[in-house]
């Protein structure tokens, strides 16, 4: 059993009686590390915070000196620009809207995403922090392949290549450690990642890819347009 927690150890049994801690499997093991050296918040932390804050303002100010915030023509309800784009952080959703019916892309998927994010700590998905292939490799492999397969087929049917490709790549990277015998450092590390880590990583990659496509690669009629092409 790998150590999720570590009982306090002291080689001097005479000085410290041995203790055994019983921890129920379903609670997180929060074990105090050896006492570290503490430093005063003032000035150590506060100065660092001040530096970080000022550095950030400097970057922002320089950005603001050289790049003006966009201001287009006055609003004209009569003329819809082509394409009409939402702010960039919604363009992932808008890109989904291109593939799925509005109810799926505009409501169900974002709601699911937010709910999933909220329930993460309650589902204890990541409690064990156990690598995916460390136990019950066969069962997990079938499960992963089945879910990835169904998802891929669905995405393929809807022609959502923007999600299909990241999904396939993540799935491939995910199962690689399960098959490769001689594992280097990277593969070992990948192999030790738990399921929740994979799901989150997949989610982040998909969000980033969709947002990037929606922001940079979409032109009139939401068609594929290279970013260096003038739209208007």
């Amino acid at each position: 059993m790998s150590a999720d927690f570590r009982a306090e150890k002291n080689p001097d049994a005479g000085a410290v009686p041995k203790r055994v801690a019983f921890i129920k499997g379903r609670t997180a093991a929060r074990v105090r590390k050896e006492d570290e050296d503490l430093v005063m918040t003032v000035p150590h932390l506060v100065v660092r915070e001040a530096i970080a804050f000022m550095a950030m303002v400097i970057v922002l100010a320089l950005l603001s000196l050289f790049f003006n915030a966009p201001l287009e023509w006055i609003a004209n309800p009569e003329h819809t620009p082509n394409p009409a784009k939402a702010p960039w952080y919604f363009l992932g959703l808008q890109e989904l809207l291109h593939y799925f019916p509005p109810i799926v892309a505009g409501v169900i998927l974002p709601a699911l995403a937010v709910i999933a994010l909220i329930v993460i700590p309650y589902f204890r998905v990541n409690v064990k922090r156990e690598g995916l292939w460390e136990s019950s490799r066969r069962r997990n492999l079938i499960g992963v392949c089945a879910v990835a397969g169904i998802l891929s087929v669905l995405l393929f049917l809807y022609n959502v290549y923007a999600m299909l490709i990241p999904t396939l790549i993540v799935a491939a990277v995910m199962v690689t450690p399960a098959f490769v015998r001689r594992q280097g450092r990277i593969l070992l590390w990948l192999g030790s990642r738990p399921l929740s880590w994979w799901i989150m990583t997949w989610f982040v990659i998909v969000v980033v890819v969709l947002t990037a496509i929606g922001t940079l690669f979409r032109g009139p009629e939401w068609s594929w347009t290279w970013p260096w092409k003038e739209i208007y």
């Binding site: 966009p70 201001l71 287009e72 023509w73 006055i74 609003a75 004209n76 309800p77 003329h79 819809t80 620009p81 009409a84 784009k85 939402a86 702010p87 919604f90 959703l93 808008q94 809207l97 019916p101 509005p102 109810i103 892309a105 505009g106 409501v107």
Partner: peptide, 22 residues
Amino acid sequence: LPWDQLAYWGISVGTNMARSVP
């Protein structure tokens, strides 16, 4: 708030998305 084309249609697109709630 700037009330330019970017703003107007950005918001229109966004609220149209909200409109698809069943």
